[in-house]
Write a protein that binds this DNA or RNA. Structure first.
Lengths: 220, 220, 220, 220
DNA sequence: TATGAATGAGCTTTCATTCAT
DNA sequence: CATGAATGAAAGCTCATTCAT
């Protein structure tokens, strides 16, 4: 976590540092990101950086926190279209809304995803807490689906969650890879064809998971 | 490609260098891998390294070539269980055999996967050739499945391949994450529970793809 | 241009670095000059060097700038002996005064001359600006001489300038070769015999150029 | 001097090594020339090189010897146009013939000149012998001119020789700088305009030296 | 609290030369 | 005599971090 000195900074200055850091991590990943470049681009003193953050990891953690916060804020205003959604409808809404969020701040998403998913930090002890959040939510969702009778109760929950996570990451990766070549990421994200592709990917997952017959049960 | 000098080396020495390199790339990825550490661990002079390889990328490419070669050798002895397999049965056999291969040299798989999949080199021009191989094979497989009537002809082929590739990578990732923590990785890979999980993941994909109704067709 | 950090250094430290660099370039030329040796002799850290300069070329450019500045300062106090000098008299004064300047900082002159004249950088894009200065001045001087009737108007101006530049460089080279072997270089430079030799060299050039008959005109 | 092993080599192999070395020194000068590149381009073993030559300097010396030999051979067939040439006519013939020689093997001339003239080795102890040759010849020529009454006997011989050498080097440099940009060096060297420029330069020197009045005499 | 100079280990790569075979 | 692998010093340059002011 950044030191108190960082939060005492004027909003504007703080924003510059964060923006520059986002660009750096998005462009270079964690290992290759350079504090030297960041302080140079931010226009802050080298020493100041170490008065704000304990190091590179601390700065990156801050970006993760920002992403989590922004995502929470974004979702606070959104509501599922109706009360009678089954779990898969709800999940579909969840992913598509998340996709919409990605389009609002693609560079931040890219920076964090690149490091967490691609450099393996996602599974490190360091960020286990973020993963747990996601796992907890998904587990709850799946439990509810089982209670509602939408999913066979004998399902291998742990595996199902892994599958869902895989899909989430795949969709995010898809978004980042394709989207970055677009001049207008936002327009691309909202385009009907993009939406359609996302839907198709979700359907494949849904029908796979719905098929909850003998093969997809826990070993007796 | 390594220089001739490298291939002139005694088998044993060559093996040491390759083994050390595998560990290095597996532990650090491409960017953070250090030639200094590699030569120190290999017990060769720094200058010697550059008589064997033109640089870090050259060394890594060699690992990729080794992996490709070993995979080819491994598959040469394996045969699908029967002649009448449908596409999904064949694909399931393919993935499971590949999974078996991964267990024979997990660190090599990890080294290459980490760099190609996670550092994005997989999509770079440099390794486009490897990706094309895979894509070509999958496309042919899918075309055949369509001709056989196993898959709806109106399917969005490009998307389907992306989904299959996602699954391949997901299964490889699963293997690396879980498998590497096992003391006896071969035993773990052959264990019924492990096999069952792989099968389940494949069934999810299969039933997802089989569902080739209106939602999963190309836009008219 | 050196970075601001360099100019923020205490005068004394800056002087040490410059002096060491002069010795290095004078002794080894540009290519063979070693940053390692420079930082070792200067007593600064390697990293510090790159906080002062962007690289070897940047450091060398700084020496060129210093030379230009010192030369300007030196000439500011000197004045041609009289108002009615003809062009050749003026040029003679110019060269002799320049010669006097060389004696004030012979190693700096040597360092810069060696690199610019001998390693061909003088004709590189990098230092084209310095050469243009000189060329412009000489051209103006020659035009004036033609207007005054001191030089045949049909002269091949471009060639004449090349000849004058050759003489300038030759005299500088002479100075460096002979002068640097003298214990008291200033005394040597001021000695009547030295002055006389310079004068003779200039006369040879002058009478050669004055002879502006048929052979030395532009081709009709 | 190269070792005997070198001269035992088949003519063809020897020629390849020499040709490659010429290109290397012409392109990079002495310091930056790379034995590594030379042996690679020559197709000889690294160790073999050190059985032929004691080192880089030895190889370069061999090029100088070849140049001297080829120049001698070239001049053996040429004869001054008439017996009654005065010294300046003879010198003009000398320079123009030398210029003609340069055009026959420009890369060799460039390689040697670059190192000797530009990297200062010309004035080093190492190559003093070559310089003495030239000096001896010029001194004899000048003595003869004095005896013939073409040059004032009170002339400062040492200075005159320096001037002549300066011109020689200047003309060679001119040849190398301009000529290298020409697609066809030989054609350029033989072009009337080139010849004319050379003549003009020589006239400037000649008329300068002829002017043997009071100013150009040794100090009394 | 802000600053930015200082640091030395580290990076990848090239070098001329040696020497065992 | 030929070979080419081995070598370690040296090259230019970047790094994250410290610390005195």
């Amino acid at each position: 976590m950044p030191k108190q000195t960082f939060f005492n900074l004027p909003e504007e200055k703080r924003q510059i540092i964060v923006d520059v850091a986002i660009e750096e991590f998005a462009d270079y990943g964690f290992e290759a990101a350079s504090i030297n470049r960041i302080v140079a681009s931010s226009g802050i003193a080298k020493g100041s950086f170490y008065q704000y953050f304990s190091g590179k990891l601390d700065l990156f953690r801050h970006l993760v926190d920002i992403l989590a916060q922004e995502k929470t804020d974004y979702f606070r205003d959104k509501h599922p279209p109706g009360n009678n959604l089954d779990t898969f409808q709800f999940y579909r809404w969840l992913v598509k809304t998340g996709f919409g969020f990605n389009a609002t701040n693609p560079r931040l998403v890219q920076a964090v995803s690149r490091v967490l998913l691609n450099e393996g930090l996602y599974y490190s002890q360091e960020f286990a807490v973020y993963r747990e959040q996601s796992t907890t939510m998904l587990t709850a969702m799946l439990q509810q689906a089982i209670e509602r009778g939408e999913v066979d109760p004998s399902i291998d929950v742990e595996l199902a969650i892994m599958i869902i996570e895989t899909w989430n990451n795949a969709i995010t990766s898809y978004f980042l890879k394709e989207g970055l070549q677009q001049a207008d990421i936002m327009a691309w994200a909202r385009a009907p064809q993009t939406q359609e592709r996302i839907e198709k990917m979700l359907y494949v997952m849904e029908y796979g998971l719905r098929k909850t017959e003998s093969e997809f049960k826990t070993t007796p």
